[in-house]
Design a binder for these strands. Structure first.
Length: 869
RNA sequence: GCGGGCGUGAUGGAAUGGUAGACAUACGGGACUUAAAAUCCCGAGAGGGUAGCCUCGUGCGGGUUCGAGUCCCGCCGCCCGCACCA
């Protein structure tokens, strides 16, 4: 038989059109089935999708299509994270309005996504730059303001001099802007903050319940929240300027209170600034500290610098115990209180500092079995081993470090010297951005009335259509009319807030908006509560902190404001790996695009050369696809050459989805080959079925039971693997079934009995259904070829006959002393006696026993027998 | 330094403490073909033997167990995140 090759270029657009016409993936309001919400992280509309998107969205789509087949009412939406800097840059470079640029990109990417056959309900699509969306977001902002979740503070902020905007702490990586890479400067500005830190404890404990999140992400969030418990106390400051008589300190090591020899404050500490007013040498020192910067290398190599202020602080337990007060470059203003107590004997950093500046070292404790005092290595005691205390006020003894800390803490509380305190690293979220392509903060500043929210009936605060793009910085600030308004209170001259919101605000609640995208209010609480939390969220691990933490805060904040009633937005989180590719370099050291390179394998050695000239090419390391290394493969080209199903199948095969996957030409060829094999199998089956010369009416059923068992087992297994997001294993199961069916088909292509034909037909039909979530276009084509009614996209996931999952015989391994010697075929549930008899008579066993009786016989029913000599 | 993860054929990877290497890719051989592609069949962890089979084998060293890729202890290496955090 010859079968025409399956042509994805013709079939894929065909089925995409049919799905659209029949609204196959549009949710109906009257659908009463059990809801399931699967969501992939929505993209920034850069203009083109990349392979990372294809992988991300394929993973989600398989799950969505599978759950739909399982009878769930599936919400599977798509939208656009559309505000942000690139649009402004494009506007300036190309003299195209940011809005036009953005919507043109969206149109193109939507087309690309549709060509992949993703089962989105496109009727719910929105972009965060849609006026309606940011209108709702402005309402949320005002609600948060009323709920006490917003603060306006003057604070030191991270200023990105290239992007000319403020960055959140989360957006500063190694002292550089996350987007521009520019060294971040510190500036003092008045900013809007969302009070994330109010929820620090709740966000931390909430992580424990997220058992369907990767441990890695939970750990990262825990670290970010940075809870530490310790002692809070105040030093008295002798000779302090007015208002600085008390110096608050936080320490997680209360035990060191017994041996401090100095105190230090950060260069940015208010007391340092106060002292600097009268002492130029302090100004100079502070500047020196700032010059070192915050880059990783600088921190690692920076010398510990201290400046003795000449002031003395007094120990809270004893007013006569005086310690010198330093300004030190290693003390951080944004952790704790910006002041530390220095106990050199038991902290290496403090010891280095003490040795450098000739400060005394006072040992608090020594190991039980030694009397050795600290030299140049600080003694940090193990937490749970007992150590001997040699310098202690209160009651000493031989204690573990835990006990010592606890005891000191209680002593301080009892005496009123200090109190136990919990400290978080998590800061409030500064959301003001000095950019125009973002959601305007709906606030008006009036000289006489102060800062006022925009009255709700005046919302939305729309971005102007005529945004000047000739100058860098915030165009809203340069706009001739937009920012000047009448005060809503007194009617006098007032100005709009020209800052816009961080784009992470936009993405912190979009999953909620998808549940009721056209609602007049930000949410329809009943609908949102019914859909949320998202059952399965899929995206890159790069959002482990920023987006996912902000979203977790947002659901809490929205609950407080009455918009929904839940704390955690995402019940299941899956972080997929990156798409990588080999890199190629020309002789002159330029990166080359894979499309321009041809690879040959000669004598097991892979060689690369340039397609155009044949010049040799160096094969480099495997890296994440990136423009800079040019090792990108364009999804459009793959779809055009092989079709979307091949790309989808490749993304699911081989590599577990949480790991990186390497895109290879060979792998794609393999995927494409399998697609053709399925088509061939289906087409040949149909020919067999419809050819009366082949089809005999005998009743032989050789191989039927086996085939049916494999079919049913495959259905069960593939379902389980998809639900566990182990798509690579689902793929392997499908291969196995397809191989068996092809073999059976081939064995009977001259004659087949009725029962064999039936079993084969069942297998082929099930195979098509199993493949349908992964290669939906191919599956529809096969479904139609099989003569099935309707779409496979609407077909229910096949039921499994439990009777066919039961095996009646099983292969049991026979070991002697734990070493495999033989295998035997046994009926399931064979008695120990019969097993024993068979095993002891086996040739390898009798040989090794050599006439002796075994010492022991381990029998694990239906699994393994181990003969112990 | 702290935290998380990983280490299995040529390669991607499978293996509820129970037959290591499923499935795929690359490779080798064969069939079909004038030839190639496509397709189909066969082979394949390493070593030894004509063969039945035997020995070794999951980063390294120990341990627990009838039995360890899997569990425990100690190393080595790689990846990711955080970090002058008091």
């Amino acid at each position: 038989m010859t079968v025409e090759r399956y042509n994805p270029r013709e079939k894929e657009p065909h089925w995409q059109k049919i799905w659209e016409e029949r609204q196959s993936f549009v949710l109906r309001d009257d659908d009463k089935r059990d809801p399931y919400y699967v969501l992939e992280m929505f993209p920034y509309p850069s203009g083109r999708i990349h392979m990372g998107h294809v992988r991300n969205y394929t993973l989600g789509d398989v799950l969505a299509r599978y759950m739909r087949a399982k009878g769930r009412k599936v919400l599977h939406p798509m939208g656009w994270d559309a505000f942000g800097l690139p649009a402004e840059n494009a506007a300036m470079q190309n003299k195209v309005p940011a809005r036009d640029w953005t919507y043109a990109n969206i149109a193109n990417m939507r087309k690309q996504l549709k060509a992949i056959g993703l089962s989105y309900d496109w009727t719910r699509e929105f972009a965060t730059c849609d006026v309606d969306y940011y209108h709702q977001q402005q309402k949320l902002f005002l609600d948060f303001l009323e709920a006490g979740l917003v603060a306006r503070k003057k604070s030191k902020v991270n200023w990105d001099p290239v992007d000319m905007t403020v960055l959140a702490n989360e957006q500063v990586i190694d002292g550089r802007g996350w987007r521009s890479g520019a060294l971040v400067e510190q500036r003092e500005l008045t900013q809007w903050f969302l009070k994330v830190s109010d929820y620090a404890e709740d966000l931390l404990t909430g992580l424990d319940k997220l058992d369907r999140w990767p441990e890695k992400v939970r750990t990262m969030q825990r670290n970010w929240i940075g809870k530490s418990e310790g002692l809070y106390f105040e030093f008295g400051v002798k000779g302090a300027p007015a208002g600085f008589e008390k110096l608050p300190v936080f320490t997680t090591r209360p035990d060191t209170m017994h041996g401090p020899t100095f105190a230090a404050i950060a260069a940015d500490h208010p007391l340092a600034a106060e002292l600097a007013k009268t002492r130029p040498e302090i100004v100079e020192f502070i500047e020196r500290c700032h010059q070192i910067g915050t880059a990783q290398e600088a921190i690692d190599t920076a010398e510990k610098l201290g400046f003795d202020t000449g002031l003395k602080v007094t120990h809270p337990a004893d007013p006569n115990w005086e310690l010198p007060l330093y300004i030190a470059n290693f003390v951080l203003m944004d952790y704790g209180t910006g002041a530390i107590i220095g106990c050199p004997a038991h902290d290496q950093r403090d010891l280095d500092f003490a040795r450098k500046y000739g400060l005394p070292v006072l040992d608090v404790y020594v190991p039980v079995d030694s009397d050795e005092r600290v030299g140049d290595v600080a003694y940090v005691p193990p937490k749970t081993e007992k150590v001997r205390y040699i310098n202690w006020f209160g009651e000493p003894g031989i204690l573990t470090n835990y006990e010592a800390m606890d005891k000191t803490l209680r002593l301080f509380e009892q005496k009123g010297w200090g109190k136990a305190q919990t400290q978080y690293r998590l800061r409030d979220w500064g959301i003001s951005r000095q950019r125009y392509w973002g959601c305007p903060i709906p606030v008006i500043h009036c000289e006489s009335c102060g800062t006022l929210p925009v009255p709700r009936d005046q919302l939305p605060v729309k971005l102007p259509d005529d945004i000047p793009t000739d100058k860098p910085g915030n165009a809203l600030d340069h706009h001739p009319t937009w920012k000047h308004v009448a005060c809503p209170n007194c009617g006098g001259k007032a100005e709009r807030e020209t800052d816009t919101m961080d784009t992470f605000v936009d993405s912190s609640w979009y999953y909620t908006r998808f549940t009721a995208p056209k609602a007049a209010e930000p949410t329809e609480p009943a609908i949102a509560n019914a859909w949320l939390p998202v059952d399965q969220y899929v995206g890159g691990v790069e959002h482990a902190i920023l987006h996912l933490l902000y979203s977790r805060f947002f659901t809490r904040a929205m609950r407080k404001a009455g918009h929904l009633n839940l704390d955690e937005p995402f019940k299941g989180l899956f972080t997929q790996g990156m798409v990588t590719h080999e890199t190629y370099k020309s002789a002159s050291g330029e990166w080359l695009n894979p499309a321009d390179v041809v690879i040959e394998t000669v004598d097991n050695v892979r060689r690369a050369s340039l397609i155009t000239t044949g010049a040799p090419v160096e094969i480099g390391s495997i890296e994440k696809m990136s423009k800079s290394k040019r090792n990108v493969v364009d999804p459009d080209e793959i779809v055009a050459t092989y079709g979307a199903d091949t790309a989808r199948w490749f993304m699911l095969s081989d590599s577990p989805p949480e790991r990186d996957v390497q895109w290879t030409e060979a792998g794609v060829e393999g995927a494409s080959r399998f697609l053709q094999r399925i088509w061939k199998l289906v087409a040949e089956f149909v020919e067999t079925r419809d050819d009366l010369r082949i089809r005999l009416n005998g009743d032989g059923d050789a191989g039927v039971l086996e085939l049916r068992k494999l079919t049913h087992r495959s259905v069960r297994n593939v379902g389980e693997e998809i639900e566990g997001l182990r798509f690579n294993r689902a793929v392997a199961q499908i291969y196995e079934l397809a191989n068996a069916l092809a073999k059976f088909q081939q064995a009977h292509d001259k004659s087949i009995t009725a029962s064999q034909l039936e079993a084969l037909g069942e297998g082929v039909e099930r195979l098509v259904q199993l493949v349908a979530p992964m290669m939906p276009h191919l599956a529809e084509t096969c479904w139609e070829a099989l003569g099935k009614q309707g779409l496979v996209a609407d077909a229910a996931w096949p039921a499994v006959d439990p009777a066919l999952l039961v095996e009646d015989s099983v292969t049991v391994a026979v070991q002697v002393n734990g070493k495999l010697r033989s295998t035997i075929e046994l009926p399931v549930g064979a008695s120990r006696e019969s097993v024993e008899e068979i095993v002891l008579a086996l040739e390898p066993v009798t040989r090794l026993l050599d006439g002796k009786a075994p010492k022991k016989l381990i029998i694990v029913p239906d699994r393994i027998v181990n003969v112990v000599l």
